[in-house]
Amino acid sequence: MIKKVEMRVLSSQQIAKDTTEVILENKYISENAVPGQFIHILLEGRTLRRPISIADIDQENKTITILFKKLGSGTEQLSTVSSGTTLDVLGPNGNGFNTDLQEGTTVLLIGGGIGVPPMYALGKEYKERNVNVVSVLGFQSREHVFYEEKFQELGKTIIVTDDGSYGKKGFVTNVLNQVGDFDHYYSCGPAPMLKAVTSELKGKPGSISLEERMGCGVGACFACVLPTKTEKGYKKICCDGPVFNAMEVVL
């Protein structure tokens, strides 16, 4: 159930070029959020909230972690919040990942840029359940890479950069032939990347998480609809997603 809550900022730091990590405290959100969901943050002086994916959930300490890229004045403002600040938040929003794979199976996580954070929350949960985790993470350049060590703790991790300044050069799809067998793949990132991934892995079971600008974040405004391959026509990313079956939507 989505609730309007106040979340206290415990820390905020830049962890890569244009990328900020913020740890937020709230008992309700931390106890009810699942990997793949997001929170909707209202910033002072702004009309629309900002949807930010959840990168980590710590129920013991009643916190969640969010990571975001500074793409405009709103996220620029969010990157300046200081410890002790309280934020007006709706959450947890959307439908998260289906995590019903059994112990001993293998999952492939494919994240691109700011689509990497929700992959970490998912991989961490699977690791705790003794599911094998393989990750392929794509970034623009060495300066943009983050959470590499955290993913390596989960399992085999391949880093790819557009310019080849770190890891392997190219796109995430260029290294998918190096990951071996897996039972299910999960991916989040820009739409062109997701389109390429679903095409490359066509026929394999998979789930994708879509990033989109949103208005209300609760399905009332129809600002984030996308076409599907079913007779139902369109679905709303904010409440029907952001996670969908990889073959369900039209990218």
Rank of each mutant, 00 (worst) to 15 (best):
I2E: 04
K3Y: 06
V5Q: 04
E6Y: 10
E6G: 12
E6Q: 14
L10V: 04
S11C: 04
Q14H: 09
K17M: 10
K17D: 14
T20E: 04
T20I: 15
E21I: 07
I23N: 04
L24N: 12
E25D: 02
E25N: 04
N26G: 10
I29S: 05
S30R: 03
S30V: 05
N32E: 11
A33F: 10
A33N: 08
V34G: 02
P35W: 14
P35N: 13
I41Y: 05
E44D: 15
G45L: 12
T47L: 08
L48D: 14
L48Y: 06
A55D: 01
D56I: 04
D56R: 14
K62Q: 14
T65A: 09
F68M: 11
F68H: 13
L71T: 14
L71M: 13
G72V: 09
S73F: 03
G74E: 15
S83D: 10
L87Q: 06
L87E: 06
D88N: 15
V89N: 08
F97L: 14
N98P: 00
N98S: 14
L101V: 13
Q102W: 07
Q102A: 15
T106C: 04
T106D: 02
V107G: 02
L108G: 00
L109M: 06
L109Y: 02
I110F: 01
I110Q: 01
G113D: 03
G113E: 06
I114L: 06
G115N: 09
V116S: 08
V116H: 06
P118M: 01
M119S: 08
G123M: 01
K124A: 14
K124Y: 14
K124I: 11
E125S: 07
Y126F: 15
Y126D: 05
K127A: 15
K127F: 10
K127Q: 07
K127V: 00
E128F: 01
S135W: 11
L137F: 09
G138Q: 13
F139W: 11
F139Q: 10
Q140C: 04
R142N: 10
E149V: 11
K156V: 00
K156Y: 01
T157K: 03
T157A: 03
I158Q: 03
D163L: 02
S165N: 07
G167I: 03
G167Q: 01
K168E: 15
K168M: 13
V172N: 06
N174G: 02
N174W: 04
N177C: 02
N177A: 11
V179N: 00
G180W: 01
G180S: 01
D183Y: 01
Y185N: 00
Y185T: 00
Y186P: 00
S187A: 15
C188D: 05
G189S: 08
P190M: 08
P190T: 06
A191C: 00
P192N: 03
L194E: 09
A196F: 04
S199Y: 11
S199T: 15
E200V: 07
L201W: 09
L201H: 08
K202W: 06
K204Y: 03
S207M: 14
R213G: 11
M214W: 07
M214G: 06
G215E: 12
G217I: 10
V218Y: 06
V218K: 03
A223P: 00
A223W: 03
C224Q: 00
C224L: 02
C224D: 07
T228G: 12
T228Y: 07
T230Y: 09
G233A: 05
Y234H: 07
Y234W: 06
K235L: 12
D240V: 07
G241N: 09
P242E: 03
P242Y: 04
P242Q: 02
N245A: 12
E248C: 02
